[in-house]
Simulated scan of single mutants.
Amino acid sequence: MRRLPAQQRSRETVQRILDAAEQLLVTVGYERAVASPMVLVEAAGVSKGSFYAYFHSPEMAMETVALGYMERSTEMADEFAAADYDRWEQVAERAIECYSDYYRSPAVRELWLNGHLSAVAVAADAQANLYIAGRLRDAIVRVAPAQSTRLELHHCSVAIEILDYLLRFAFRKDPEGDPVLIREAAVAMVAYLKTAVD
């Protein structure tokens, strides 16, 4: 964003723009949503001046929507990491469940699966995945301290990347996610983690 809104009314304007951007992602797709700033301006019900006060372009608004989803993804990691589990495998199963729900969002699928993330968003996505990996490691170590003495952050990073790519594959053609592919993502992630967790 060009600048952060200080006043409540300005924050509401920005939120209307972001809500409209997300809705356009779902209803018309990224390409049509960013074809002209007027598409987003009209959908948000704001003036051109209000739009340009906060965003350089519709692409910047879409980038901000993507960054908001990444923030939610890290909040989801905090939630699954804080939950109680009997076995470390349940941590991985809960992560799979959380991020399957994440990909059920039409806006997420439009941005991630159709390659509409900006360079800034791609870098933020890598940082978000690293954060999620750290929270996965924290939870596994907490649940199974004796079994996870060899578990390093890089193991969890690879596990999260496995999960992320396989979930993208599972949701590419099915908005609810192909259940067979989601199960396979779970098998692959847990099997990989077992190489570092005794």
Score class of each variant (00 low, 15 high):
Thr64Ala: 13
Arg2Gly: 10
Ile132Phe: 00
Phe51Lys: 01
His155Val: 10
Glu31Asp: 15
Val26Phe: 04
Val122Glu: 14
Thr74Gly: 00
Arg2Ile: 15
Val108Trp: 03
Glu63Leu: 06
Ala21Ile: 08
Leu163Lys: 01
Pro179Leu: 09
Val28Arg: 10
Phe169Met: 13
Gly177Phe: 01
Val158Phe: 12
Ala133Cys: 08
Glu12Gly: 02
Glu79Gly: 00
Ser157Val: 15
Arg150Tyr: 14
Leu24His: 02
Asp101Ala: 14
Arg168Tyr: 03
Glu42Pro: 00
Ala128Thr: 10
Asp138Cys: 00
Tyr103Cys: 01
Phe55Gly: 09
Val141Thr: 11
Pro175Glu: 12
Ile162Trp: 01
Tyr102Cys: 04
Thr149Gly: 13
Glu31Phe: 03
Trp88Asn: 05
Ile132Asn: 00
Ser118Gln: 05
Val91Gly: 05
Ala82Met: 10
Trp88Tyr: 07
Ile17Pro: 07
Glu89Gly: 07
Ala92Met: 05
Gly115Met: 09
Arg150Gly: 11
Tyr131Phe: 15
Glu93Cys: 01
Leu67Asn: 01
Gly29Arg: 13
Val143Leu: 08
Val120Phe: 02
Leu117Asp: 07
Ile162His: 02
Asp164Asn: 15
Val34Lys: 01
Phe171Arg: 05
Val26Ile: 13
Val143Asn: 02
Ala191Arg: 11
Val28Gly: 01
Ser73Thr: 03
Met38Ile: 10
Ala139Trp: 00
Met189Ser: 07
Arg3Lys: 15
Gly68Phe: 04
Val34Cys: 02
Ala44Arg: 00
Ala82Glu: 15
Ala20Pro: 01
Gly115Gln: 00
Val65Met: 08
Leu167Glu: 03
Leu25Pro: 05
Pro37Val: 11
Leu193Asp: 07
Arg109Cys: 06
Ala139Thr: 03
Ala53Glu: 15
Ala83Asn: 08
Arg142Ile: 09
Val143Trp: 04
Pro175Leu: 09
Asn129Cys: 11
Val46Ser: 00
Gln8Ala: 13
His56Lys: 15
Val187Ala: 05
Tyr103Asp: 03
Val34Ala: 03
Asp178Lys: 09
Ala124Gly: 08
Leu151Pro: 07
Phe51Pro: 00
Arg150Phe: 12
Gln15Asn: 13
His154Pro: 07
Gln127His: 12
Gly49Tyr: 10
Ser50Glu: 12
Lys173His: 15
Ser157Met: 15
Asp174Arg: 11
